[in-house]
Design a protein around this nucleic acid. Structure first.
Lengths: 344, 344
DNA sequence: CTGAAAGCGCTTACAG
DNA sequence: CTGAAAGCGCTTACAG
């Protein structure tokens, strides 16, 4: 930063005033084209960049967005970040990324840090802890500084923020129906992401459809560090399980592994649809039918919504966008029309 | 940002001067403790944060690091980023993340943007295009502005930068030996990341060991969007392949899938060791023996090295750190001591 | 068409 | 112990 040439220095070398140099560089119509040319040439030679602090002090805009995600070692959030980065750089915004590690404490620190850095807006998917405790004071802070928030994927009611998500309830309904239509009698929901709005919505959708079909809803909590094999085995043995909706990529893969490990076949004995469509499910054998949550699109839309908000294009009331997810048919489900043995 | 209270405003309300308020907030010994108390209380009430632009203008330090990675949808780089973010936030640094998408053009834009944002340092793993063309002018730019660079994983000679990596040549040698020791006669290298220093080093190590063992080195270029199944099948059929080193996670998984798809068994007919240890390989059936490249550690070390550099702790000459990778034994390789049928 | 001046919000040597 | 002043690098209304 030492050698950063300044307007002052440029002005001195050109024997002009700082104001003139500034205007020339900004292509002000006030300045003669000859002067502009001289100024720009020298600026090029010295690789002049305007000092962004000075500009920030003036304009009170940083063209920087803060992003807070619960994790980065997650295909879903990686894809969201990919979308965010791509759209932001396309629109000329920088992105500061913070990872809350599902901790409300780290999330709060991140919010404060981003405010102090004067980001123009904050994009956030809240931590599990925040969603579980509903302690959201720190999420109301940015508003006090006039910094808008866009929440994505995991949403919290009562926070003034624009919201981007899919309809998790509906998508869980559709996935459950899909399994039932393909002949499943005992569809369970395997949850590896407790304490998230997303999970609760999916359970709601799942439960609704299962109940309508006179089945008993059955939810298994999965700790990915210690998969509940015994429970799975019991369900399989007692014939209480022939279809599964899983909540996230890792849970999906581990579930599939363990089903095969217990000696059952997929999709014949057990069918499986997993939330989040990623490489892991795609490359598993058999490849897994997955729900594409439009991660990248959520990221892109979060950014463009934020930029619209910053630029005052949006109405004052928060807006919500709900993207349509999509079931990607692969080999962990039986195809429609091909009936289960029981129906033959 | 509108409601951001300033020192001036605070001073007015307290009937003090701006200087006194500033000093009080910074705990200067010049200020009486009573005054400090009054000032701090009011600052708390108004949730005062110092304006980081103004501070930046003064101190010429932003406590912000720029990071440029080729991709984020990669387990390896996600883990590096995880390490970077964790260490940086621990040391009180913010992180601006840019993704080059393996394009020299995007990489150059990112460098310029980061310079303009006056980051205190830049951490970079260069794009394939940069490594292939060796056009590195844009990587010499930061030095002109006294912004230090730390390169990680993929390195380029001749750039003044601190460097963090593993010894890819050595690790490829060890992996190749491991396969040979377990009885493989025809070890191939499958490359999905051409045009990277990392890849070339691995090929070098692989070639050395294979040649020493009087085998013919054989390298297959893998395009992950269009896996060369025909070539694989031919190699398998002609018995030219019973062991594989793969260059990256996706190539590894696709290779394993296709071997099984061709009707061969892993590890009995073909053994496999893959670079990059991630969830995909761990959860594959069979689980895949992988080389843990210490991704997170590379990220953490890149940050702490950068901070040492910024704080002037390091000697003026660039330093290099080489981390030791580790082979994680899983089920895609035969165990030592269990000889191949041929040896019984 | 060019320039002097004020101001963005902060810090810090210097006075008192 | 407190405050006036200068300065960080930029922009922009205002004068000339």
């Amino acid at each position: 930063m030492k050698n950063h040439i300044t307007l002052k220095e440029l002005a001195k070398q050109l024997d002009l005033s700082v104001s003139t140099v500034s205007k020339a560089l900004n292509d002000s119509p006030e300045i003669s084209s000859l002067t502009k040319k001289r100024v720009k040439e020298l600026a090029d030679i010295h690789e002049y960049f305007p000092n962004s602090f000075a500009q920030g002090l003036k304009f009170k805009k940083t063209r920087t967005l803060g992003v807070i995600v619960p994790a980065i070692l997650s295909n879903f959030f990686s894809m969201v970040l990919d979308g965010i980065e791509e759209k932001a750089s396309q629109l000329g915004y920088k992105v500061i990324i913070c990872i809350s590690k599902e901790s409300i404490q780290k999330e709060k620190q991140a919010v404060e840090m981003l405010i102090r850095s004067q980001v123009d807006g904050i994009l956030i998917s809240p931590s599990k802890e925040t969603q579980a405790t509903l302690k959201t004071d720190h999420l109301n802070l940015p508003k006090k500084f006039d910094i808008p928030i866009v929440m994505f994927d995991r949403l919290i009611e009562g926070i003034e923020a624009d919201k981007i998500s899919i309809n998790d309830t509906l998508e869980a309904e559709l996935a459950t129906m899909e399994l039932i239509n393909s002949g499943c009698k005992q569809v369970c929901y395997f949850s590896g992401i407790s304490n998230t709005s997303v999970n609760e919505n999916r359970i709601e959708g799942y439960t609704k459809v299962v109940t309508q079909n006179d089945f008993e809803p059955k939810i298994l909590e999965v700790n990915c560090d210690n998969f509940p094999v015994a429970e799975l085995k019991k369900l399989l043995k007692n014939k209480q399980l022939d279809g599964i909706i899983t909540s996230d990529e890792l849970t999906t893969i581990l579930t599939a592994r363990n089903i095969l490990g217990c000696g059952y076949t997929i999709p014949h004995e057990v069918s499986l649809i997993g939330f989040t469509n990623g490489k892991m499910g795609e490359t598993f054998i058999p490849s897994l039918t997955s729900i594409d949550q439009k991660a990248k699109e959520q990221g892109e839309l979060a950014v463009s919504t934020m930029v619209d908000r910053i630029e005052g294009i949006l109405p004052p009331e928060p807006v919500s966008f709900i993207l349509k997810a999509q079931i990607i048919q692969r080999d962990s489900t039986r195809k429609f029309g091909i009936k289960d043995d029981a129906f033959v």
